[in-house]
Design a protein around this nucleic acid. Sequence first.
DNA 1: GAGCACTGC
Length: 646
Amino acid sequence: MAPQVHSDRLSLPIDDVQEQLQEIVADSDTCIILGETGCGKSTQIPQICMNLNRPGQIAITQPRRVAAMSLAMRVSDEVRSEVGEKVGYRVRFDAKSCESTRIMYMTDGMLLREAINDGLLQKYSVIIVDEAHERSLHTDVLLYTLRLAQRQRRAQGMDELKIVIMSATMNAHLFSTYFDNAPIYLIKGRTFPVEVLYAEALDGDGSDYLYNVLIAILQAHEQEPISDDILVFLTGREEIELTAAKLRDLNEKLSNKMAVYPLYAALKTAQQQKVFEPAPEGERKVILSTNIAETSLTIPGVRIVIDSGKVKLKTFTAVDGIDVLRVERISKAQAAQRAGRAGRESSGKCYRVYSSKDYERMKQSSIAEILRSNLSAVILELISMGLKNIKSIKLIEQPNQEMMDSAERQLKGLGAVRDSKSGKKLHLTEQGAIMAKFPVEPPLSKVLLSSSSLQCCEEALTVVALLSSEELFLQSDEDSATVTRRKVSSTEGDHVTMLNAYALYKMEKNKKTSNKQLAAWAHECGLNLRALTHATKVRKQLREIAAKEGMTIQSCGADRDKLRKALSCGLFMNACEYDNQKDAYRLLLSPSTLVRIHPSSVLARSRPAYIVFSQLLRTTDLYAKDVSVIDRSWVETAISEFKKRK
DNA sequence: GAGCACTGC
């Protein structure tokens, strides 16, 4: 029986194939469903699965929170119940569900967390992985754990775990191969044609793309109907603000005006929301965006896309353990995704600010996140799920051996895992088991763990929560911000400075000022309120885990040495010694690496003999971010033991 | 004295 289609929802391409889909899902333990944006798969497939009437919940995962929540609301409407009843959602810090919830929308990271407690995912009969083509780190790791869970449940004669993978029509063979040649079913999409135009004259010229993009904007503005909004893809905040300023200048001389809107994640929420408002009468909306507009935000009214062909990408290099952030060429798949943003509501146009030959030279698809990330958290999670032999890990695309070794080395150094007597297997240590419970990078879990015995857990929780959030201090020229910065600054380093700023925020919040007043206060102080509220939630979650794991939660009061000792325990691999001759720092574990303190640090102008930092990033130079002064003796033992093992 | 793309637990 085909599910009932309510008359108050618009017809979808998927409606014509409901019965075939139900058959496919019923007949195969794993299947791949391909469909372009707008075909209705994210709302309809879970309902089709529900009609199979199997016991257990149906989970459908999304890479982003907002998508999980809004899809749950839409489908609740369709089945005529309130969110949290038949259809619910679960994301970090927020959930709506009850005993009788059948369909659960959730982030893939959330399901992965659940898998740490129950590797067999027994409460679910069907798990649908949506947007699998995005290949987020969480999606890829989840696919691996699902494959394991399905096999183990089968081997133990338990209820079958049905897996449905949903993806756009790219690299489908990867998913199919990974799941024993699972059948692929294609749903036709409903998108509008987008005309693609190349800048052939720019063949091979990558030198001044920003200037070329500016010209393309002006050209499009001159030629295209004024009612068509323009979405421009650039790489980062700095060039977006620069281009915005130039366009506003040029505007003075134009008869048809442009309304320019910058758009990037670090932008204040209120300013982000401006892109959804209509432009002033008679003006054309021009949105200058990072790739936040590629998937996370859809802006209505866009009919013209201008694509720089560039993206800023972070890549982890295993040999030296350094994250590199740099501007790179996008892939063909990414170019298609960007162009597609012009055809959401009607036909559109995409100006590519590069030649068709340059396009041909692009990679077919982008390098998946799992191939360019530090894998220590992933490996720790898998080991805590019961995996003993990390050589047996088979991800959908396998990171190279250096990446795996680097993760193993880091985890051993932190005391989270150790070799078995035979040397073939890895054992989770007692510490490691607790570390895996915290949703933070392993070095930071180690900081938390160490803080328990060093009697400074309250402080460590705050610092780790802040390190898991956005940048705390905003760049601000206002005097009031400089005053605040000076007030909270500590000669002990950035971590204690963050702690002081957080204390200031808590004091202000206790005055019970309204949210509006709090925002005004934060702006005045040059503090990022979004970071502070997020850190507050993270801190609460971490504190609950710490309590549950039986850790001692105490405050060190004014004795911040204890906090810096705890930081040293988790971050000892990032300990540095000052080199007078080079006027730079050398990593104790890799003395040939020269590091500088990032100019945003409170220690940028001082030269303490020994430091630890929480992040190393190569941009124009190799910079240590979030730096604390330490005593060499605090890291001595850990360093020498690490060297011995090597 | 330089700027951190984007998600997520």
